Simulated assay, not measured.
Amino acid sequence: MKTSVQAGVAGLLACGTLLTAVLVTRDGDDDSHSGIAYSAPSKGPYVALGDSYTAGPGITDPTGTPAGCDRSAGNYPALVAAELGLKGRDFRDVSCSGATTADLAGSQHTNDGTNSPQLRALSSTTRLVTVGIGGNDIDFSSMIKRCVAMGALYEMTGSGKYLHEDAPCEQNYVTGDSDAVREKIATTGERLTRVLTEVRRRAPEARVYVVSYPAILPADSADCGREMSLAPGDVTFLREKEQQLNSMLRQRASEAGAGYVDTYTPSADHNACAAKGTRWIEPLVPESPAAPVHPNARGERGMADAVLHTIKSAL
Rank of each mutant, 00 (worst) to 15 (best):
R202Y: 07
E300T: 08
S229L: 15
T101L: 14
S42C: 04
V208L: 11
T25M: 11
L315Q: 12
P62I: 00
R207M: 12
K184V: 12
R298P: 04
R301Q: 15
G56E: 05
A304S: 10
R250W: 05
A167M: 04
S288A: 09
E255D: 15
R146M: 11
F237S: 07
C96H: 05
E205F: 13
P45M: 04
W280D: 02
H270V: 04
T310P: 00
E170I: 04
Y213D: 07
A102F: 07
V80M: 05
L84T: 05
A253E: 09
R207V: 14
A203H: 06
L23M: 15
G74F: 03
R127D: 04
Y53V: 13
G58R: 02
K161Y: 15
K2G: 13
P283R: 05
R120I: 09
T130A: 10
E205W: 09
D223Q: 13
A219R: 09
Y154D: 01
A258P: 01
I138S: 07
R127L: 08
F91Y: 07
T114A: 06
F140K: 09
S95F: 02
Y53K: 07
A206Y: 01
G225R: 06
G11W: 01
H33V: 14
G158C: 00
S72N: 04
C15H: 13
A180C: 07
A105F: 12
A203C: 05
T193E: 13
I216E: 03
Y38W: 00
A55L: 06
V174E: 02
D220H: 05
A10I: 11
K241C: 07
A21M: 11
T101S: 14
I59W: 08
P57R: 00
P214D: 02
R120K: 12
V129Y: 00
R200Y: 03
G8Q: 07
H294T: 11
C147R: 06
S42A: 14
L249W: 05
P286F: 01
L122P: 01
Q251Y: 12
Y154K: 03
S254Y: 12
T101Q: 13
A78F: 10
S247K: 10
R201A: 15
A10L: 12
G11V: 08
V94W: 03
W280M: 00
R146Q: 15
S4P: 01
S267W: 02
S39L: 12
G58F: 00
T63I: 11
D166N: 07
L249I: 09
K2S: 13
G44F: 06
C96T: 00
R194K: 15
G8C: 04
V80A: 05
G225T: 11
K43D: 13
L163G: 11
Y162W: 10
T110C: 02
R146W: 09
